[in-house]
Design a protein around this nucleic acid. Structure first.
Lengths: 217, 217
DNA sequence: ATTTAAATTTAGGCAAATCTAAAAATTTGT
DNA sequence: ACAAATTTTTAGATTTGCCTAAATTTAAAT
């Protein structure tokens, strides 16, 4: 598998609800910052290799094999992210680009040993679940802060948007995974939220609230 | 820099006494398992980029910039090898292939942090010196066991041939870096050696002796 | 010092991954 | 339901890294 093939598989997985929902070449191209025509070419190649199901003009889904491959890449990506943050002391907004490179290193033994070294972590630094060797992971029971009823109480367990910009915003505002959050009030006018986080009271926009996952306790 | 470019630079460095001695395209091709004509192409490209000095039919040497690049790659390779052996518990004969991949990961910060995490090691698992950030490393004062006078006493600090086959042989015969070795006698007939290693007496062929480095104490 | 052998380069070609521009299919709006 | 807009694919070109086969240069041998 080339890097490019792996990246396309990953994109289809992420855009198409784990590869189950048909994704347009346009969408893939946009995510990958390439052109739709290039995606068409690649998708044909992946179809040849039985990694995707593809019908002209109808979008792409992953085959069973494709899902397996995608989960393998995601597993590697997220394990490396844990390594970078926990062992090398990177901050959570710096690790994505490096993990994008590391995820393509080929060695099953390496990733098994890395997993062991890290004590079989279940979540990456952004709260996303890490598939195990067989591609299984518990569908984290978490909800977007924006979609939880007022007075809900829980722990911040993940972010939906893991862009560097958003993560830096959270750092600046001292919001981190593990923080205890209570939704105090919803402002109907602009859909913003008043929350209690730790022992502070904060006012966060809807955009922030709809990118924070909490686990209701 | 592409992987292929980096690999060519590395080959020129290793074959040409750190890039200072002209290397033939043939030699490079053989080491890299490619064809001389392909090497010619690449070498021209590297010359364009001022990474090598190249005169048709006269072989290649590294430019100052080329040496810098080579040292950077070697630094990465060897630091990753230390990581694999010390942290992930790989054996020293397994790490080369994986490090060949990892050495191409691009992130200065990553390698600095890895270096710190590993406590700025000076040698890789085969006893080869690791260049520091500025490309400097002490020229390890070590000699081949085969070239040391009888009755010399020292510590085994490295291997010349780090092929998996040789390393496995050493493991099987319980010869490891750090072992104390005394050259007891040289057998003139076949140039083999009788040595004391730890508290055992061993008889090793010239081929073995000329691939083991010791540091005379 | 030629001739022969070996090494090296050139020329031309191929496959992968990308692109642009044009053609074809699908979707949308009225 | 049909024309217009949008999406998607095809066709053809480009770049990179590699190859084979032929030509050229250098080195070796008699």
């Amino acid at each position: 598998m080339t890097h490019s093939e792996e990246n396309h598989i990953k994109a289809i997985f992420h855009l198409g609800n784990k590869g189950t929902v048909a994704v347009s070449t346009n969408a893939i191209a946009e995510l990958m910052e390439t052109k739709p025509s290039s995606v068409t070419d690649m998708v044909k190649k992946l179809a040849e290799k039985n990694l995707v199901h593809y019908k002209k003009y109808q979008g792409v889904t992953l085959s069973e094999l494709g899902v397996k491959v995608a989960l393998g890449i995601i597993r590697k990506h997220r394990l490396w992210e844990v390594f970078l943050v926990e062992k090398l002391d990177f901050s959570w907004d710096e690790v994505h680009e490096i993990a994008e490179q590391l995820e393509h290193i080929k060695s099953e033994k390496l990733i098994d040993k890395l997993d062991t070294f890290l004590n079989h972590p279940k979540f990456d630094p952004h709260g996303d679940p890490i598939p195990d060797k067989n591609g299984l992971f518990k569908p984290a029971d978490r909800k977007l802060l924006s979609e939880v009823p007022v007075n809900s109480n829980g722990i911040c367990v993940g972010v939906k948007d893991s862009s560097s910009a958003f993560l830096k915003f959270l750092d600046k505002n001292k919001i981190a995974l593990g923080d205890v959050i209570t939704v105090l009030e919803k402002e109907e006018f602009d859909n913003s939220f008043y929350i209690k986080i730790g022992d502070r009271r904060e006012h966060i926009s809807n955009q922030i609230a709809s990118n924070l996952f909490i686990k209701i306790s």
